[in-house]
């Protein structure tokens, strides 16, 4: 991992602090002053200690445009998740078990590890696909009903709608 400049470190620290604080407020479900002070101190210490480990992005992540695309991504993802479940239900219930499994691969344009992780997770939860491994920028996908083994066509089928949005966020 490359060394971070002071500015990047500060940005990552603030983003981490904001997210941990949100998490704390959701867990305690209260705005009482004592809870907020303890939570603020604890989350500050944790995010100070974990600047190198658990952070993904600096301060630009909190810009309104990116937050809009995050909400949009969540919508796309939710629709795909419900479709995936109906798809699995259809396959499981139908007596002939309509599957044609296989492993396909495709390449992604995403650069950072964190965005690849989000894409891999989304692919696992969308209809008929399961991420087996990510090597560099190549994804290996187990597909329950293989329609094409060509990497580019597989990419359009599986990942294009997610990657378009992810490129705008990360």
């Amino acid at each position: 991992m490359q060394a971070l400049t002071l500015n990047q470190k500060l940005g990552r620290f603030i983003v981490n602090w904001v997210f941990l604080m949100l998490l704390w407020i959701m867990f305690t479900s209260t705005f009482a002053a004592q809870e907020l002070i303890v939570g603020g101190l604890l989350t500050m210490i944790i995010s100070l200690l974990s600047i190198r480990l658990f952070t993904c992005c600096d301060l630009s992540l909190l810009s309104p445009v990116k937050i809009f695309w995050m909400v949009y991504y969540f919508g796309v993802f939710l629709v795909a998740l419900i479709q995936a479940n109906l798809d699995v239900a259809r396959r499981v219930i139908s007596p002939s078990l309509p599957i044609n499994p296989g492993v396909v691969k495709f390449k992604t344009k995403l650069k950072t590890n964190y965005s690849k992780m989000v894409l891999a997770n989304s692919i696992t939860l969308t209809p008929g696909t399961l991420t087996i491994d990510v090597v560099g920028d190549t994804f290996y996908i187990h597909w329950i009903d293989v329609q094409t083994t060509d990497p580019e066509k597989a990419f359009t089928e599986i990942a294009e709608s997610f990657e378009k949005v992810l490129l705008k966020i990360f």
């Binding site: 998740l81 699995v88 219930i93 187990h142």
Partner: peptide, 28 residues
């Protein structure tokens, strides 16, 4: 959906297809 996931784990032929059914159904 959890029941359908369990049924999927029972009916699918190999571990990858079982994981497919298991993961999606248990998540939602």
């Amino acid at each position: 959906f959890l029941f359908l996931g369990a049924l999927g784990i029972y009916r699918m032929p190999d571990i990858y297809n079982r994981l497919q059914a298991g993961t999606k159904a248990t998540t939602l």
